[in-house]
């Protein structure tokens, strides 16, 4: 991560340190911390020290005595059971000790179960978050690869940009194919609603009179799509039809986007 990209986290560290981070910022920053960031961890430790110093600099106040008494009693209760004073008491003491041991084990078992559940929930949430991030990361990388590919094509003087216009029910839909006869290209679509369930969009390259299938794609909730188009070759017309999910070898459905001849 570059210095500039990390600047944003410098601000989030401070807001996180005072406990005020919320919403997306909180999710983003905790994800950033979760993958490990020595700079943020160090900044956070320094912030904690600075904030602790605020309390250290204030007048002390003696808490109510019962707090310490309760804690000391609780602590004593965790002590191992004292040995029976005399042999005479052994059978009785052993009985009591056994009963207490059972009670302690039940108590410990309950506590352990409770924390195991809590830990289980935390672990599942972490795993779900990690999976979600991995999926997002993969999608972003793929999108970036496609954009980079299109930009690369645009540097080539032989590359053309072919406009596709909406037909039928979606006249506002538009498409652009960045096409290079030697290298292939990319289709960019906007304003085309996501296909109904069980359907997909399919791109066709038409040379002469024969449509050749050039892959299926769907649009997102914003009506956008990017689709890689190959292989290279001469193409007269690009068209998109609505087809059964999975695509078909020859067009059967209505044309939703087409380029001029």
């Amino acid at each position: 991560m570059s210095r500039h990209e990390h600047d944003e986290f410098d601000e989030l560290v401070a807001v996180y340190a005072v406990g005020a981070l919320d919403g997306d910022d909180l999710v983003r920053f905790e994800a950033h911390l979760a993958v490990g960031c020595p700079a943020c961890e160090a900044a956070l430790r320094e912030a904690d020290e600075a904030l602790a110093r605020l309390a250290v600099d204030r007048p002390r106040a003696i808490p109510p005595a019962h707090v310490k008494e309760a804690l000391v009693a609780r602590l004593a209760a965790t002590a191992p059971h004292p040995r029976p004073a005399t042999r005479r008491w052994l059978p009785w003491a052993a009985g009591v000790a056994a009963a207490m041991l059972v009670a302690a084990l039940l108590g410990a078992g309950f506590t352990a179960t409770y924390y195991e559940q809590r830990l289980g929930i935390a672990a599942r949430e972490t795993a779900a978050l990690r999976n979600r991030m991995a999926a997002q990361d993969k999608a972003l990388r793929e999108e970036l690869r496609l954009y980079a590919g299109a930009v690369e094509l645009l540097r080539d003087p032989r590359t053309q940009v072919v406009a596709l216009h909406g037909t039928g029910p979606n006249p506002e839909a538009i498409g652009r194919v960045v096409w290079n006869e030697a290298a292939g290209g990319q289709l960019f679509v906007a304003n085309l609603p996501a296909p109904p369930a069980g359907k997909t969009y399919e791109l066709w390259k038409i040379t002469g009179a024969t449509p050749v299938a050039a892959g299926v794609f769907t649009t997102d909730s914003a009506g956008k799509a990017i689709h890689e188009v190959g292989p290279a070759g001469k193409v007269d017309v690009f068209a998109v039809t609505l087809e059964p999910a999975g695509g078909v070898p020859a067009p059967t459905g209505p044309i939703v986007l087409a380029s001029a001849k």
Partner: peptide, 26 residues
Amino acid sequence: APLAFPLVLRIVRDRTDAADVLQEVF
């Protein structure tokens, strides 16, 4: 505890609540 108690009290404002929180913290 004399360091933490004023901080807790300043935040929760109620002495009984602050004592509870302090016990939990320690």
